[in-house]
C-alpha cells in the first residue's frame, strides 16, 4: 500500500511539473516526485541511497528554484491569474494528463505486493512524463526538469533492479549514486549555459538559442 501511495504521488508530482502555472510550484512538484521515489527506495532496504536522494534533491531543487526564478519569463503566473497566459499556452492540457490522473484516481483495485514489475511501471511512467517534458518544453530550465524526471525514473528502476535481481553485491546501489551525481552535473552545466546565454542574448528558450553564431 505504501508503495502505491508513493508511486501515485511520484507520478502525479511529475505530471504536475508541466501542468501548474507557477514556476515555484513546478519546482516543488518535481521535488515531491523525487522525494516519493526516494520513499520507494526506503521501502526496499535502500536506506542510504533513499536518504541520500532526499538530502541531495532538496538542495538541488532549491538551487533549481533559484535559477528557475531568475530566468523564467514569468516566475509567478499561477499567483496572478490569466493575465499572462500567452507565455505558457503550451503547458495547458497536454494529452498525457488525463491518463495520469485516471491512474491517480483509481489505484489498482487489489493491492498488489510490490514487485519488480510495479517499480518498472513507475519508472516507465516517470520516464514518459520526463521525455514529454524534455521534448515539448521550450524553456531551457523546464527542459531540464524533464531531464531530471527521466533521471528520477532511472533511480527508481536502478534501485529496484538491485533489490530484485542482484541484492548481494553493491553495484546496483553505485549505479543509483552515479545517477544522482549525473543529475547534479546536468544541473550545474545547464545553469552555467543558461546564465551565459541569458547574459549574452537575453533569451532562455531553446528555439531562440538554436543558432551557434554570435
Amino acid at each position: 500500500m505504501g508503495f502505491w501511495t508513493l508511486a501515485v504521488l511520484a507520478v502525479a508530482g511529475g505530471a504536475a511539473v508541466f501542468v501548474v502555472n507557477s514556476m515555484a510550484r513546478a519546482t516543488f512538484a518535481l521535488l515531491t516526485s523525487l522525494l516519493a521515489v526516494a520513499g520507494t527506495l526506503l521501502l526496499v532496504d535502500l536506506g542510504y541511497v533513499g536518504v541520500l536522494v532526499v538530502l541531495m534533491m532538496v538542495m538541488e531543487m532549491l538551487v533549481m528554484a533559484v535559477f528557475m526564478i531568475m530566468y523564467m519569463m514569468n516566475p509567478a503566473a499561477g499567483a496572478h491569474g490569466a493575465e499572462d497566459a500567452g507565455d505558457d499556452g503550451d503547458r495547458d492540457g497536454h494529452p498525457g494528463d488525463d491518463d495520469l490522473h485516471r491512474g491517480a484516481r483509481h489505484p489498482p483495485g487489489t493491492v498488489r505486493p510490490m514487485t519488480l514489475q510495479s517499480f518498472l511501471l513507475l519508472a516507465a511512467a516517470l520516464f514518459s512524463i520526463g521525455l514529454y517534458g524534455a521534448l515539448s518544453q521550450q524553456s531551457i530550465v523546464m527542459l531540464m526538469m524533464g531531464l531530471e524526471l527521466m533521471i528520477n525514473a532511472l533511480i527508481a528502476a536502478g534501485g529496484a533492479f538491485w533489490y530484485y535481481v542482484a541484492p548481494h553485491n553493491a553495484d546496483g546501489q553505485v549505479l543509483v549514486l552515479v545517477a544522482v551525481t549525473v543529475m547534479a552535473l546536468e544541473m550545474a552545466m545547464g545553469f552555467a549555459v543558461t546564465t551565459a546565454i541569458f547574459r549574452a542574448r537575453d533569451v532562455d528558450l531553446t528555439d531562440e538559442a538554436g543558432d551557434l553564431k554570435g
Binding site: A24, F28, L31, G47, Y48, V51, L52, V54, L55, V58, M59, M61, L62, A65
Partner: peptide
C-alpha cells in the same frame, strides 16, 4: 536507522525548502 547521520542531515536540509517557500 543504520544511516542516522545522513537522515539527520537530510531532514535538516528540508528547512531550506520551508523558509524559501
Amino acid at each position: 536507522s543504520g544511516v542516522g547521520i545522513v537522515w539527520f542531515n537530510a531532514m535538516e536540509v528540508c528547512v531550506w525548502g520551508a523558509l524559501w517557500l
